[in-house]
Amino acid sequence: MGIRKTTRMAKNSSPSATAGRKANRRHPLATVALIVIGLVSTGGAYALFSSTASADTPAAVSGAASAAQGEKLFAANCATCHGMNAQGTSVGPSLYGVGAASVSFQVGTGRMPLAQQGPQAEQKPAQFTDAQVADLAAWVASLAPGPGIPDSKYLQGNGNSATGAELFRVNCAMCHNVAGAGGALTEGKFAPALTGVTAAHIYEAMVTGPQNMPVFNDANLTPSQKSDIITYLKYLDTNPSPGGIDLGNLGPVSEGLFIWIFGLGAVVGVTIWIAAKAN
């Protein structure tokens, strides 16, 4: 199209076709620049929006939980798969002995009720209020003994972060990554990222071993060691990387992608600019 227009114009006015073509064209990289600006601004806005949206996670509240209320909620929302008496069916496991901690973790993080069968239960916005979760937990806990709601003294994040970091590297990092950024498991399952997870949910996950996660009972990791791990994870949450933007803490792959796309991209852009003939 550019050629068509410029040649006609060149015929009419300019004696030099090349000069006319040069002057009348937008810079070839203008479109690219425009797209990049557009992508960066929408992406940035999205990142900002989503981070502010997830910032206000509800604090754990425990009031007088009513097992009777929980039973009603259970019958209405959970019994289809787990059975009216939580005895389990062909599509859902029995909940005898899973304890209040399991309910608090699975329902409190939105993993239960399950939206659909899949490699593993995905986290989604919690369907119940904290009071309702406590009611459900109270009823399930009343069926058989199991791990209970953790004592709040372990959830303060005031343990030893250095011990916690070491325990985390030895026990957790092979699936969750050293920075808690998550990682891949087999058959489409994955270890989720641990950023922004509440202290109670971290503790409950350790004692109940949800989905593919092994159970770290009190003989394996003592409550104060669990508290140290929570302290370390909270340290990572509250202290941004001293080196600047952390690129998701995914390691050399994201660094490599970054240098090829942005580093080399910028440098090649400059070479094109330098070698371009002055208009």
Binding site: A173, M174, N177, G251, P252, L257
Partner: peptide, 15 residues
Amino acid sequence: PSPVSAGTQPDWYIG
């Protein structure tokens, strides 16, 4: 020698 983190990769050029 005991722990290995998820997402352990070499730098891109050894990838």
